[in-house]
Design a protein around this nucleic acid. Structure first.
Length: 212
DNA sequence: GCAAGGATCTAA
DNA sequence: TAGATCCTTGCC
């Protein structure tokens, strides 16, 4: 069940898809969170490290807004944990949840406005072997399915807080072609108790890597 | 269906 | 400083 864009992107060469010069810059992230979320859907997260290159196409995201969003960790103001969200967009906010897990967000909006986009699922394009070393023997579809699984496959840790997503080692490349709005389904966010009604989860519905 | 388990927040 | 909470996962 491949959609056309997934097929297209898998045909492209490593150099075409994973070039840092094609990546989003600071100005992209320092905009309203929902706009950034739209721009990140179908985009490719790339992480270069000594052990190898990891790349995956983002297919499921959640927006956490700076205003009127009780589910945002930063809704009750600044804290040590949420400090990255108050910085200018274009860095990571990583937090621990339920003991063993990590969740990775891309910080949005200008400095002082705590917005973020949670990375919930992605289709692996490169680095499958390295990800399996971290995740164990799971199917390709499941490598980056679910926020904590994505974080683990990419090797993100709490120490990656404040890390730039506009560097040569970590960046996000826009989709080769615009995402058709009808390919996207918006739903309430997963696992939250407050602000359940807001349709801030964005899913490329055809993807076999979206969470269930 | 629910336990595991760590960091953080809140109330005291 | 104790107790609750939490943007989850995988095993029962």
């Amino acid at each position: 069940m491949w959609d056309e864009q997934t097929k297209a992107i898998r045909r492209m060469s490593t150099a075409e898809v994973f070039a840092p010069e094609r990546a989003y810059g600071w100005e992209f992230y320092q905009r309203p969170t929902v706009e950034v979320a739209w721009g990140l859907l179908g985009a490719v997260l790339v992480k270069r490290e000594p052990e190898g290159l990891c790349a995956a196409r983002l297919v499921e995201l959640e927006a956490y807004l700076p205003d009127g969003d009780a589910a945002n960790h930063a809704a009750r103001g600044w804290s040590e944990r949420t400090a990255p969200m108050f910085a200018a967009g274009g860095i990571l906010y990583v937090y621990a949840i339920y003991g063993r897990h990590r969740c990775v967000n891309v910080v949005t909006e200008p400095e002082g406005r705590p917005g973020a986009v949670l990375l919930r699922a992605a289709e692996v394009l490169h680095g499958e072997e390295l990800m399996r070393r971290r995740r164990g023997e799971v199917q390709w579809e499941a490598l980056c399915r679910g926020p904590a699984n994505l974080a683990r496959a990419f090797g993100f840790e709490l120490s990656d807080n404040f890390r730039s997503v506009c560097s040569a080692e970590l960046f996000i490349v826009p989709p080769p072609e615009p995402i058709a709005p009808e390919a996207v389904r918006r739903t309430p966010r997963i696992g939250i108790s407050r602000a359940r009604e807001l349709p801030l989860r964005f899913v490329l519905w055809q993807s076999r890597c979206r969470s269930r």
